[in-house]
Design a protein around this nucleic acid. Structure first.
Lengths: 333, 333
DNA sequence: CGCTATAATGGAAACGTTTCCAGTTGCAGA
DNA sequence: TCTGCAACTGGAAACGTTTCCATTATAGCG
């Protein structure tokens, strides 16, 4: 194993000089620099990254705590984060929360484990208690798709999203509009379901439509919510003509039930989702697009900025966009 | 920052003893151990992971080199790897190959960068040159969905997979069967397209059907291959009645074109894909399932085993499974 | 030509662990 | 009581860098 001392000896300089060359520090003469670089090349020397981190008191590692990392929404956010973080030369360590307990566990690990220079938390809420702990340990945090007043956060406005979806259905002539939510995440403390529901109800009222409590269903597990919700709504009398699903995944459950019963959008009913995951374009699902990758990128950028300027806390809200497809386009026969 | 020396001093023992307690080494009396643990708890001491790695000469980090990590196939493999690796207490560093050059770059980084205790390479082929370099640097490698005779590998049999798909279509009464491949990956050196094609041709011949070269199309970009392939096949005379798509993603492109032209499976044509990604169940696509997550898990396990027993090289072949859905089930009207 | 400020340089100390060697202790057996 | 061995313990050295301080060389200036 070639060390910095081998290089120094062979180049006839001190280890400090080699280190300065490696780190592009000032105060190395051009000639010495070239000479050292030649030896580095000759011996094929690469500094040991672990040994570099010890005296620097940095881990050069960023931790990401996120739930369900195989779900398209999270994969896309993660991709954005990953791209920015590795670009900046940091390592990325993913902590995948697949059960509610793990959430606490990873927060603790992040704070006390001395493993990260900074942490990005996706979707999961951060309690005041942990906000304080992170602050006390000088560990910068950024929230993506989650919010806390004292922490840098990248969000979309879910109330507005709910309104966008609902208004679109109203514009298409619907008045009997149902909402299928998803409480799965309540276990983890997400609260986006409530926000979108709020936007939905508000928009109905703004348009002079009284929300019908029988047309609001809260399921508890992604696609399963859609299955349960669709079956529930079909048992109501009257049935709604349009459904706003909490997410595209929930919408998939609705599609499944509809298909079994021989119902097809856009003519038998209208359907709108949320997120715009890849699958949605293939099934012609109208949806509210979240800029997932961009959310990840911006989160990573905020964190990297925070590493240099610890007090530069910012809250950024990214825009949502309605993507209109077949599922809300009633075709007059 | 609390160090091991603070703990030692407060507990009235030597640093060696504290270290032995931390690492559950033998030769610490029960009483001393309890006393040290009490102080660790009292001072809330956590060993600095970076400092541990330096004298141990380990990074406790595994590198994964894989292409397109947002594609469902790779996400699923990655999930399997991640679960096993973090279970074993290692960090996982993902290197996402999204352009052919990056592949080489990451291999070099893995070998020379001194960052990993071991490496998992997914789908990308490993050249003899790198096999030698990895060996020379004592860096264990495992291949997942790729193969090299001197390296531990987890594979499926793509020739058999091609045969499975083709035989299924023949069993359903088809004789005019097309194949749409995907050369995108040729840039990266994948060769699964050729293997599946081989299985397809062999099976046709085994059933006394002469492969028609006009019904073989090699596209070059996932869904795009399907789009191009479908348009090409529809321009042939005669047109095939069944299509075997290299992957589910390619099949999605076929579906898109078919829909535009008012054609629907299973009655207008039959379609079979490969992989069984999540979307396939929603669109009723018959496919050949790869045990993606299991491939990742087994790969990780092999690597962890290799860390302890460097010469225990194994090649494991996992079974494929035909998943029959609507897209190949012609309904007699 | 001497003086001073500045640039360049060498190398010791530090980062926080693990590991190993040299003791020390305690106890069984004679 | 003494001997020998095993169990336990302390702490120095080592891991491979960075950083900082002391020192030397260089250049500019009057």
């Amino acid at each position: 194993m070639v060390t910095i001392r081998d290089v120094a000896k062979r180049a006839g300089v001190g280890v400090g000089t080699v280190s300065r060359v490696l780190n592009n520090s000032a105060n190395v003469s051009a000639q010495t620099r070239l000479q050292v670089l030649a030896v580095i090349d000759e011996l094929n020397f690469r500094p040991n990254p672990i040994a570099q981190r010890l005296p620097r008191q940095e881990t050069l590692t960023i931790g990401v705590i996120l739930p369900f990392f195989t779900f398209p929404f999270f994969v896309n956010i993660l991709e954005g984060i990953h791209a920015e973080i590795s670009e900046a030369g940091y390592d990325l360590l993913v902590m995948n929360v697949d059960s509610p307990e793990k959430s606490e566990q990873y927060f603790g690990k992040a704070v006390f484990g001395r493993r990260f220079d900074g942490v990005i938390v996706v979707t999961l809420p951060l309690s005041d208690q942990y906000v304080e702990l992170f602050a006390k340990n000088d560990l910068p945090v950024v929230l993506v798709d989650s919010f806390h007043p004292q922490i840098s956060a990248i969000t979309v406005n879910n109330v507005v999203g709910g309104a966008l979806a609902t208004q679109h259905l109203i514009d298409k002539g619907h008045t009997k509009i149902a909402y299928i939510g998803d409480n799965q995440n309540d276990l983890f403390g997400f609260h986006t379901t409530q926000l979108r529901l709020h936007g939905y109800q508000q928009t109905l009222r703004d348009n002079g439509i009284a929300p019908n409590p029988n047309w609001i269903f809260q399921g508890n597990q992604g696609k399963g919510s859609g299955v349960q919700g669709a079956n529930y709504l079909l048992s109501q009398d009257p049935t709604p003509t349009a459904i706003f699903a909490y997410s595209d995944t929930v919408a998939l459950g609705v599609v499944e039930v509809a298909e079994e019963r021989g119902l097809r959008y856009p003519n038998d009913f209208a359907l709108i989702g949320f997120d715009d995951i890849e699958i949605s374009q293939y099934i012609g699902l109208t949806t509210v697009r979240q800029p997932m990758q961009e959310m990840g990128k911006q989160g990573a950028r905020q964190l990297i900025n925070l590493l240099a300027h610890p007090s530069d806390v910012k809250a950024i809200e990214l825009p949502l966009q309605l993507v209109e497809r077949k599922s809300t386009n009633f075709i007059r026969g």
